[in-house]
Design a binder for these strands. Structure first.
Lengths: 193, 193
DNA sequence: TTGATCACTTGACAAATGACAAGAAATTAT
DNA sequence: ATAATTTCTTGTCATTTGTCAAGTGATCAA
C-alpha cells in the first residue's frame, strides 16, 4: 500500500529527514471504513494511533439528555487520537465515527512508544502535534467565550469550507454549540446579504 | 531553596522515582512576583518553563474591541506554560499575569530539551502533562458548547472553589464566557435558593 | 414503489444573555 | 485621610439563542 500521503504529512509538519519518516511509518498498516462506522467507541481503551488519509470524521459525547454533542470534526489528512485513552490507557469518554467513507493508517501503542523513546525526531513531532492540537482547542474556547454564533459560523466556513459539503448541518451546529434551527436562521440571514 | 513542593508535584502526577525527580528539577531556580505582575507578555517568545508553587494567575488575550478575555486561570501547584510559544519558539498571543503574590520555579528551554531527550521518565511526564491539559480544555469546550452559564458557574465553583476568594468576579465572568453583570445575576439567583 | 426516516427550514414564542447606565461598596494611590 | 479607581450590583431594554411544532424535500430500506 502506498504510504505517500502518510509520509508527506510528517514532512509537511516538521523539518525531518525522509529516512526517519520511513522508519516511523514502517509498521503502520492500512484499512478502510464505510461511512457511519465507529472507529473508537466510548468506554473502550484505545490501543492504536490512527491517521486519517481520506474522508471526514467526528467525535461526540452524549449529554445527560442522551443527545449527541459533537466535540470535534476531522478532515483528512490528520491524526485522530483520543490522547487520554491512548496515553493513560483509560476508557474513552467520546465516540469516534466516520461521516464519509474513510481511508486510514494505524499502528499499535507499543510501536508508538518504541518510536517515542527511540527516535528523537518522533518525540519532537509528537510534541508538536500536541501543541498544535492544544492551540486549535484553545482558539475554539476563546471563540466560544467571546464570539457570537454567527461569527463562529463564518470562521468555520472560512477555515474548513469543505466540511459543509460533507457533514450535515445538524452536526456542524452541535460542533458550533448551537441548535440546528439557529444555524439554519444564521445561514438564511447571511444569504440575504 | 526548598524544592519539596516542586518535587512532590512530579511524584503526585506519575509513578516516578525520587532520584529521577531530583535530576529533573536540579536546574530549576526560584523566584517570586508581586500581584498584578506580568510573567510572560504577548508578542514575546517564551524561553522558560514555569512552575507555580503558590498563588493565582491568569492568561488573557485582547479582542478586537481591546477588551481582555481571560483564557485560563491557574491555581498552584501547577505548571504554567505557553506551549506554542515555548515549543515552536514563536511569539505568544496571550499575556500571563499574576493575580496574587506568587512563588515560582523556572528552568530554561535548553534544560527542558535535555531532560526530554535524556530522561525517558521526563518524556512520559511531559506527555502526560499535555494530555491532562488537553482534556481540561476539551471539557471546557464541551461545557461552553452545551451548558448554560449557570451550570458552568456551578461547575467552576465546585471544581475550584478557592479562586472565588482570590480572583475578581470580572475575570471569572470573562473566563466563563459571560459578562460580569450576568455573573452577578446568576449568583443572586443561586443565593436565593 | 412505498413508507419510513432524516435533514433542513420556518413560525411563534420563551428563555438566556448582553448593553448601557447608575450607584454602592471596596480597594488603592497619593 | 481623602480622592480616585475598581469591583460588584441592579434596573431597563435589546439581542441572541432555544424550544416546540409543523412542513417540505431528500434519502434509504424493504
Amino acid at each position: 500500500m502506498d504510504k505517500t500521503i502518510l509520509n508527506t504529512y510528517f514532512l509537511s509538519q516538521f523539518p525531518i529527514e525522509k529516512e526517519i519518516v520511513h522508519e516511523i511509518t514502517k509498521y503502520f498498516t492500512h484499512f478502510e471504513l464505510k461511512k457511519q462506522t465507529c472507529l473508537l467507541d466510548k468506554n473502550t481503551v484505545s490501543t492504536e494511533t490512527f491517521f486519517l488519509e481520506k474522508g471526514y470524521m467526528r467525535s461526540y459525547i452524549l449529554n445527560e439528555e442522551n443527545e449527541e454533542v459533537t466535540t470535534n470534526i476531522y478532515e483528512a489528512p490528520c491524526f485522530v487520537n483520543d490522547f487520554l485513552s491512548l496515553f493513560k490507557q483509560q476508557p474513552s469518554k467520546e465516540t469516534y465515527q466516520t461521516l464519509t467513507d474513510c481511508v486510514f493508517w494505524k499502528t499499535g501503542l507499543k510501536n508508538v512508544q518504541s518510536n517515542f523513546h527511540n527516535i528523537p525526531e518522533f518525540r519532537e513531532f509528537s510534541r508538536l502535534l500536541f501543541v498544535i492540537n492544544y492551540y486549535k482547542l484553545n482558539d475554539r474556547v476563546i471563540e466560544m467565550a467571546s464570539k457570537k454564533a454567527e461569527t463562529r459560523y463564518l470562521n468555520l466556513l472560512h477555515q474548513k469550507p469543505k466540511i459543509f459539503q460533507n457533514v450535515s448541518l445538524k452536526i456542524i451546529a452541535s460542533y458550533l454549540g448551537i441548535t440546528d434551527s439557529t444555524l439554519s436562521r444564521i445561514r438564511k440571514e447571511i444569504s440575504k446579504l
